[in-house]
Simulated assay, not measured.
Amino acid sequence: MKPKILFIMHIPPPVNGAALVGQYIKNSKIINKDIDSDYINLTASFSLEKIGKGGYNKIKIILSILKKVFTSLKANDYDLCYMTLTAKGAGFYKDFLIVLLLKLFRVKAIYHFHNKGVSKSSQKWFNNFLYKITFKNTKCILLAPSLYKDIQRYVPEENVFFCPNGIPKLQTKDEITKIENSVITPCKFLFLSNMMEEKGVLELLKACSILKKEGYPFNCDFIGAWSDITEDVFMHTIHSLSLENNVTFHGKKYNQDKVEFFETSDVFVFPTYYHNECFPLVLLEAMQFGLPIISTPEGAIEEIVLNNATGLIIEQQNVDALAKAMKFMLKNPSIRKQYGLAGKKRFQENFTLDIFEKKISFILKNTLK
């Protein structure tokens, strides 16, 4: 008889890292092969603009989720519950209600974190009390060892699994364009993420302005969904910095629609300082296409991008450091190619969807034992 597992996790929309991973798990033949799976969508905000905000409709959605969880637990004898637990804030309080149901029905739980903030949030006595209840007799999946410090107060290391995210391979030409080392042609930079201020959008525009003033030939493409950076703010900034001929916004692009941009770009730039950033899937996509990366030491990024090996890690919110890194990449096409090849090899060895699915399958089987 197959073990029965209840998956409570985020599924798109909106499109973000946790939701995409949830979709991969739900569709995985490897993970679902030897288990009897039930799935409940944990998402209460179906657009980027509504994440973190309340309202009557969200309360109705949360009550509906709680009802589905209660009904499933009452009707089935689950061997395990896999849950993508939110680390802090209103999302954690919502998830804690589900945790109480799991405790009530005495279902073994394993939490998969795609964000962070437990350590800081636990400084408040009430949150500390809730975390003690939440983590008692449970196991956790973290995206990288560097993130363990966030929950070490509550979970011994022997109850923690480390599993980096993986992504499906997009169709590529499977070759890196030959670069003439002797000629500096306009370097093409690419930013692809939700258009949030904390993703470093404005810092990147300011760095582009520095490159333009110093006369460097370059283009920078922006791809993503509008968020707290609106179209008006973005276009106004471009005009104020006189970047109309260097910067282009292309809107949202998903799946194969992104391929053209990855294949025709030279460097991927992701200067994030987003407080919830843990393991950005977009960096894996850039590595898959052999792009060198400029990013920051947020979350587990330094365990994805190896500084001076597959890209450059710079200080957050430091426009001068960002511009300096961009100029280095622009002036050294041979090093760009070297970093890109090393990154592509690192992706193939560590971050494919097949590797991720096998690790999650192993973790679930191990936890069931």
Rank of each mutant, 00 (worst) to 15 (best):
H10I: 04
I11S: 02
L20D: 02
L20T: 13
V21T: 13
Y24R: 05
N27V: 03
N27I: 02
S28I: 04
D38H: 12
Y39C: 05
Y39V: 06
T43F: 06
A44G: 06
E49N: 13
I51R: 15
G55T: 08
K60P: 03
L73D: 02
N76P: 05
D79Q: 09
K88E: 13
K94V: 07
K94S: 11
L97K: 04
V107G: 09
V107M: 05
H112N: 13
K124M: 08
F126P: 00
F126T: 07
Y131D: 03
T134C: 12
I141K: 06
L143M: 10
P145N: 13
S146A: 07
Y148T: 06
V155N: 04
V155I: 15
V183L: 14
V201N: 01
E203F: 11
L205C: 09
C208M: 12
I210S: 14
E214T: 14
N219K: 13
F222E: 05
A225E: 15
W226P: 01
S240P: 01
L241A: 04
L243H: 12
T248V: 10
H250A: 03
V259N: 09
F262Q: 07
T264R: 13
F268P: 08
F270K: 03
N276Q: 14
P280T: 05
L281F: 07
V282C: 01
L284E: 08
L284T: 02
F289L: 04
T310A: 06
L312F: 10
N318Y: 12
L322E: 12
K327Q: 15
F328L: 11
F328V: 03
F328M: 11
P333F: 10
L341A: 07
Q348H: 12
E349M: 00
I355D: 02
F356T: 01
F356I: 03
K359D: 01
K359I: 00
I363M: 07
I363P: 10
T367Q: 00
